[in-house]
């Protein structure tokens, strides 16, 4: 080992973020954890090169969190990051507005309707009932049940193309 004199520079944060783009939601393989908005922070220790990643769950009871945590660790270690620490907390609680535009597109690709952007508006029942059909893109839709195949999905029906479809829920 002779890396004392020119020990490797810590990896740039932008590089870490690029690698993390490859880590997908295990249940929706078209969307990355970054575009899902569950990666709330990345820090690189300037001395040791250790990378700390802060994750927050989309839903408190999400059973995929441990898997996501291990996937982040595995991916960064495989790229040669010397040490990885993943913290899961609700310091910055996830809301569906944290989905990026690329993330919304990735959901559509998976035939999931992305949640409406709430912004500063009052989050009332109208938001829960509204969804755009991922098949015909119409708005003539109806909430059938707020609970679907996973905690983050609701089931709606499109009156235009007469199809049931799933929506990634607004919260």
């Amino acid at each position: 080992m002779q890396n004392d004199a020119n020990s490797p520079q810590p990896i740039a944060k932008s590089q870490i973020l690029e690698w993390l783009q490859a880590v997908k939601d295990p249940e929706i393989p078209t969307i990355s954890l970054i575009d899902l908005g569950v990666v709330r922070g990345v820090e690189v220790d300037a001395v040791t090169g250790k990378v700390s990643v802060h994750l927050t769950p989309t839903f408190a009871g999400c059973p995929a969190m441990d898997y996501m945590k291990r996937d982040v660790e595995r991916t960064l270690l495989a790229h040669g990051v010397p040490a990885v620490e993943v913290e899961i907390s609700m310091r910055e609680a996830w809301t569906s507005d944290m989905l990026t535009e690329a993330g919304r597109q990735a959901l559509r690709q998976h035939k999931l309707s992305p949640p409406p952007v709430i912004g500063n508006q009052v989050f009332d029942l109208d938001f829960l009932e509204y969804a755009e059909c991922p098949n015909c893109h119409g708005n003539n839709t109806e909430l059938r049940t707020p609970f679907g195949a996973t905690l983050c999905r609701a089931v709606h029906y499109c009156h235009d193309c007469r199809q049931l479809f799933e929506q990634f829920k607004p919260v």
């Binding site: 408190a60 609680a93 809301t95 989050f123 829960l128 905690l151 829920k169």
Partner: peptide, 17 residues
């Protein structure tokens, strides 16, 4: 308070249902 801010959004669905 942090946990509550998260859970209240999910509980809206329970009340709606």
């Amino acid at each position: 308070a942090q946990v509550a801010r998260k859970l209240r959004g999910e509980l809206k669905y329970h009340a709606l249902h």
